[in-house]
Amino acid sequence: MKVIFLQDVKGKGKKGEIKNVPDGYARNFLFKKGLAVEATPANLKELE
């Protein structure tokens, strides 16, 4: 799953980066803790 990092995550990505991460990791950790959002067209547009 492609995500946009909202904060630096040690060993995974830095704020503003767009990266592919495993689905479970994204849903169960990154999204729940507010560290990233899914890289949807709407979210990508907001990032610009």
Results as ranks from 00 to 15, higher is better:
residue 1 M to K: 07
residue 1 M to Q: 06
residue 1 M to H: 04
residue 1 M to W: 06
residue 1 M to P: 03
residue 1 M to G: 03
residue 2 K to A: 11
residue 2 K to H: 09
residue 2 K to M: 15
residue 2 K to Y: 15
residue 2 K to L: 15
residue 2 K to R: 15
residue 2 K to F: 15
residue 3 V to I: 08
residue 3 V to H: 00
residue 3 V to D: 00
residue 3 V to K: 01
residue 3 V to N: 01
residue 3 V to T: 01
residue 3 V to E: 00
residue 3 V to M: 02
residue 4 I to P: 00
residue 4 I to L: 11
residue 4 I to E: 02
residue 5 F to T: 01
residue 5 F to S: 00
residue 5 F to I: 01
residue 5 F to A: 00
residue 6 L to W: 02
residue 6 L to T: 08
residue 7 Q to A: 14
residue 7 Q to T: 12
residue 7 Q to I: 11
residue 7 Q to M: 13
residue 8 D to Y: 09
residue 8 D to G: 05
residue 8 D to L: 05
residue 9 V to G: 01
residue 9 V to L: 06
residue 9 V to R: 01
residue 9 V to I: 09
residue 10 K to V: 11
residue 10 K to R: 13
residue 10 K to S: 11
residue 11 G to I: 02
residue 11 G to V: 01
residue 12 K to W: 15
residue 12 K to S: 13
residue 12 K to H: 15
residue 12 K to I: 15
residue 12 K to T: 11
residue 12 K to Y: 15
residue 12 K to P: 01
residue 13 G to N: 02
residue 13 G to P: 00
residue 13 G to W: 13
residue 13 G to K: 01
residue 13 G to R: 01
residue 13 G to T: 03
residue 13 G to V: 05
residue 14 K to D: 05
residue 14 K to Q: 10
residue 14 K to S: 09
residue 14 K to L: 12
residue 14 K to N: 09
residue 15 K to E: 05
residue 15 K to T: 09
residue 15 K to N: 03
residue 15 K to D: 01
residue 15 K to Y: 06
residue 15 K to L: 06
residue 16 G to Y: 09
residue 16 G to I: 00
residue 16 G to H: 08
residue 16 G to A: 03
residue 17 E to I: 03
residue 17 E to V: 04
residue 17 E to G: 02
residue 17 E to Y: 03
residue 17 E to M: 07
residue 17 E to W: 04
residue 18 I to F: 04
residue 18 I to S: 03
residue 18 I to Q: 04
residue 19 K to Q: 07
residue 19 K to S: 07
residue 19 K to F: 05
residue 19 K to G: 08
residue 20 N to L: 15
residue 20 N to Y: 15
residue 20 N to A: 11
residue 20 N to P: 07
residue 20 N to Q: 13
residue 20 N to I: 15
residue 20 N to W: 15
residue 20 N to V: 15
residue 21 V to Q: 04
residue 21 V to T: 02
residue 22 P to Q: 08
residue 22 P to E: 11
residue 22 P to W: 08
residue 22 P to F: 08
residue 22 P to K: 09
residue 22 P to V: 07
residue 23 D to W: 15
residue 23 D to H: 13
residue 24 G to T: 14
residue 24 G to W: 15
residue 24 G to A: 13
residue 24 G to V: 12
residue 25 Y to Q: 04
residue 25 Y to R: 05
residue 25 Y to P: 04
residue 25 Y to N: 04
residue 26 A to G: 04
residue 26 A to N: 03
residue 26 A to H: 03
residue 26 A to R: 02
residue 27 R to P: 02
residue 27 R to E: 07
residue 27 R to H: 09
residue 27 R to S: 04
residue 27 R to W: 10
residue 28 N to L: 12
residue 28 N to W: 13
residue 28 N to H: 12
residue 29 F to D: 06
residue 29 F to R: 05
residue 29 F to Y: 15
residue 29 F to H: 10
residue 30 L to H: 00
residue 30 L to M: 03
residue 30 L to D: 00
residue 30 L to N: 00
residue 30 L to P: 01
residue 30 L to Q: 01
residue 31 F to N: 01
residue 31 F to I: 11
residue 31 F to M: 07
residue 31 F to E: 02
residue 31 F to P: 00
residue 31 F to R: 01
residue 32 K to V: 13
residue 32 K to W: 08
residue 32 K to F: 08
residue 32 K to M: 12
residue 32 K to R: 12
residue 32 K to L: 13
residue 32 K to A: 13
residue 33 K to W: 15
residue 33 K to I: 09
residue 34 G to I: 03
residue 34 G to T: 03
residue 34 G to R: 10
residue 35 L to H: 03
residue 35 L to S: 02
residue 35 L to R: 02
residue 35 L to Q: 03
residue 36 A to D: 00
residue 36 A to H: 00
residue 36 A to L: 02
residue 36 A to G: 04
residue 37 V to L: 11
residue 37 V to R: 08
residue 37 V to G: 02
residue 38 E to Q: 10
residue 38 E to F: 05
residue 38 E to D: 04
residue 38 E to S: 07
residue 39 A to E: 02
residue 39 A to Q: 03
residue 39 A to H: 06
residue 40 T to S: 10
residue 40 T to W: 04
residue 40 T to P: 05
residue 41 P to V: 13
residue 41 P to N: 09
residue 41 P to H: 10
residue 41 P to Q: 12
residue 41 P to G: 08
residue 41 P to S: 12
residue 41 P to Y: 12
residue 42 A to P: 07
residue 42 A to Q: 12
residue 42 A to Y: 09
residue 42 A to H: 13
residue 43 N to W: 08
residue 43 N to L: 12
residue 43 N to F: 10
residue 43 N to G: 05
residue 44 L to Q: 07
residue 44 L to G: 05
residue 44 L to P: 04
residue 45 K to S: 10
residue 45 K to E: 12
residue 45 K to N: 10
residue 45 K to A: 14
residue 45 K to I: 11
residue 45 K to G: 09
residue 45 K to D: 09
residue 46 E to P: 07
residue 46 E to G: 12
residue 46 E to F: 14
residue 46 E to D: 13
residue 46 E to T: 12
residue 46 E to L: 15
residue 47 L to Q: 09
residue 47 L to G: 06
residue 47 L to E: 07
residue 47 L to Y: 15
residue 47 L to N: 08
residue 47 L to M: 12
residue 48 E to S: 13
residue 48 E to H: 14
residue 48 E to G: 13
